[in-house]
């Protein structure tokens, strides 16, 4: 039955993607292009574009997209459930032990080592988003950036938003809606 196949495929994707969204993409590719012929190569390329453009976790976006394509809304729901089921089980087990043992000094040491690394990982993700916002060419990194490629409007919007966030402590979601509207006027109309 197709629903069971969808569930099992996305269960595997959820189970083996360590390190977040981008780690899930190769697994999704294997499942939907090689193991099953659920999407064409063009559709897979569309899937990549859409999941990165739209809000929400990339793996969930991809699950929903593939699920809808093969079996409509029920397919989308089943694929999403399949993708989060391993997380739910594993994370709940980890949560249980974390809250039970978090005060042990050995656990405290591990957590003390983890926290600064998490800050760096968030910073690294932030950097790639920043590069997308301030350079015209997609996929620009610190190592291959060109000054001539800078998107001045992007830099100005980012700078003003950071200033507003830090100075006035505005709700980040309001700031994002604001920059979206600014984008429509600046990129779309001018």
């Amino acid at each position: 039955m197709i629903y069971i196949e969808i569930f099992l495929s996305f269960f595997q994707i959820g189970l083996f993607s360590f390190g977040g969204g981008y780690a899930a993409l190769p697994l999704i590719k294997t499942q939907v292009l090689e193991v099953h012929n659920w999407l064409t190569v063009e559709e897979f390329a569309d899937l990549l574009t859409i999941s990165q453009m739209t809000p929400g976790p990339i793996a969930i976006n991809a699950s929903t997209f593939v699920g809808t394509k093969i079996a409509g809304l029920p397919g989308a729901v089943i694929a999403t459930i399949g993708c989060v089921t391993p997380s739910c089980i594993i994370v709940l087990i980890l949560s249980y032990y974390y809250f039970k043992y978090k005060n042990l000094s050995s656990i405290q040491g591990i957590l003390k080592g983890l926290r600064p690394a998490v800050v760096s990982l968030i910073a690294s993700a932030g950097l790639s988003i920043l590069m997308l916002a301030i350079f015209k060419t997609k996929g620009t990194t610190l190592l291959n950036m060109k000054l001539s490629d800078i998107n001045l409007v992007g830099i100005i919007i980012v700078a003003i938003s950071v200033f507003i966030l830090r100075k006035f402590k505005l709700d980040p979601i309001k700031v994002m809606i604001g920059t979206g509207i600014a984008g429509v006027f600046i990129y779309g109309i001018l």
């Binding site: 932030g126 950071v162 994002m176 604001g178 920059t179 979206g180």
Partner: peptide, 8 residues
């Protein structure tokens, strides 16, 4: 535009 906001 929203991407710039997210970066900020």
């Amino acid at each position: 535009g929203m991407r710039a906001g997210v970066a900020a």
